[in-house]
Amino acid sequence: MTAPASSTPLPTARRKSPGLRLATRPNLVIGGALVAFLLGIALVSLVWTPLPPTKMQIALKLKAPLEKGLFGTDHLGRDVASMLMAGAWNSLSIAVSAVALGAAVGTALGVTVAAKRGLFEAVAMRANDVIFAFPPILSAMMLGALMGTGRGTAIIAIATFMVPVFARVTAGAASQVWARDFILAARSAGKGVTRITIEHVLPNIANQIIVQVAIQLGLAILTEAGLSFLGLGMAPPAPTWGRMLADSQTYLGTAPWLALMPGLAIALTVFGFNMLGDGLRDLLDPREKGRT
């Protein structure tokens, strides 16, 4: 077969039905279900939680799961299930904002690097490396010193960490697109760099960006939990999974569920996003399967 012909996979002759595609992709189904479930919980927590998550009932402190509430109470007698729900919203909203910000800035940087090349590329990518070298915890501490801790600081600290990741992924993918003949055709049609980037480059790398978003969301949740754990996240009394973990340390021996519940929540969320990312990668580009 000649080279171009072999690039048409045979099974394209019969297109698979969407339902079938889902059924053969457990990653996507499991990841998607987990993420949807968490998102649902987070949204519900805005209007309803079993008890107000910040309501303290010292008399009922450190009750075991099912003894008081679904998951018991903490050292201040707050309902753990309610805190987890509210924490889901806090964690997810910070992670989503941070990844959105990081993806937007990183993608813009990446496609510009691919379009400009040359000195701009060298400078931007080295700057990237420098930013990437700072742990997000350190960025958050520096930012916290500047503008105080809180939701905004956490978002910016995590986004700063995301920018180089997205810049790198999009610059690589966009460079490959720039090498294709249809870009030459667009240039022959007199189109400028910006137009070509919007009309041809971005649609062709959208898949990679979407996959990266899912994977980075998992990482952002983890980082947010880390920041809260260290007290660099949202200010108390707003419940976050990270601070629930931090608070539970003293009671590990007597009330292990205090550590177990937020820990499980974090693990499940990260796992869900990673599965979703893998599943999306397989779905959007079967050739990527098995690559890391």
């Binding site: 171009p4 003949d181 055709a185």
Partner: peptide, 15 residues
């Protein structure tokens, strides 16, 4: 205008 060699690379697959 121009016609390119590779009919698989010269058309944007997303359009």
């Amino acid at each position: 205008q121009m016609v390119f060699q590779d009919p698989f690379g010269s058309l944007d697959p997303r359009q």
